[in-house]
Simulated scan of single mutants.
Amino acid sequence: MKITDVLIGAAVGFAAGYAVKEACAQKDVSPEKALKQVKSNVQHRIPVNGSWIHMNPEHYEKNHVDYDVYRGGISSNEDGQTKQMDFVVDAKTGTILELDKQ
């Protein structure tokens, strides 16, 4: 067995291990994707006219469970009036944790 074969094998093994680690690492959902998911989840119930989201995740605790979340809001027209709704969405999964009318 040549030393070059060992070095090539080690390099390939290292590269494969790094690729698997990166693929398995759970990454945050982007704020844009989280906002898009919220809008698509509520669109069938209320028509969304406007929306916003904080770009930086923040710490949030609900039912003694810690989350990193994005906060945002959506607006809609109901009965000729603009209604505002605030939401809290999990930054890891994009799951809506809270959706409150104002």
Rank of each mutant, 00 (worst) to 15 (best):
Q81T: 10
F87V: 14
K92N: 07
K33N: 06
N77M: 15
K83S: 09
E32R: 01
F14H: 04
R45C: 06
P47L: 04
A16M: 12
M85L: 13
I53Q: 01
Q43H: 07
N56T: 05
Q43W: 01
W52Y: 07
Y60E: 06
V88W: 00
N56S: 05
A16N: 07
R71E: 14
K21S: 07
D68M: 12
L99Q: 04
V65D: 03
K83F: 09
M55D: 01
S40D: 11
P31D: 00
H54W: 02
Q81I: 12
V42A: 10
A15N: 05
E98K: 14
P31F: 08
A34P: 00
W52C: 02
G94Q: 00
G80Q: 08
H54M: 02
E78N: 09
M85E: 03
H44A: 12
G80A: 14
K39N: 11
K27W: 02
K92C: 00
P47V: 08
T82F: 11
H44I: 08
G94K: 01
N41A: 14
S51N: 03
D28V: 01
G72E: 02
D86A: 14
V65A: 02
I3G: 05
S30V: 00
L97W: 06
Q102W: 05
W52N: 06
L99R: 04
Y70G: 05
G50K: 11
I8N: 06
D28S: 02
T93P: 04
A25G: 03
I53Y: 00
A15M: 11
D90C: 01
N41E: 13
G80K: 13
S51M: 04
Y18I: 14
V89K: 03
Y70M: 04
N56Y: 00
V65M: 14
S51I: 01
K62Y: 04
P47W: 00
I53C: 00
D68N: 12
A23F: 10
I53T: 00
C24R: 03
M55I: 07
M1G: 15
A16L: 15
A15I: 10
E58M: 10
F87S: 12
G9V: 10
Q102F: 11
K33W: 00
Y60M: 09
N41G: 04
D79W: 01
Y18M: 10
R45K: 11
Y18R: 09
K101Y: 15
L97K: 05
K83C: 11
A91V: 02
S30Q: 01
T95D: 13
V29M: 05
I74A: 11
D66L: 08
E61S: 13
E58H: 03
T4K: 13
K101P: 03
K27V: 07
E78A: 09
L99C: 07
K27Q: 09
Y70I: 06
F14T: 13
G9R: 10
N41M: 09
E61C: 03
T4R: 11
E98I: 05
G13E: 06
Y18T: 13
T93Y: 03
A10F: 12
I46L: 15
A11C: 08
K83H: 15
V65R: 14
K27P: 01
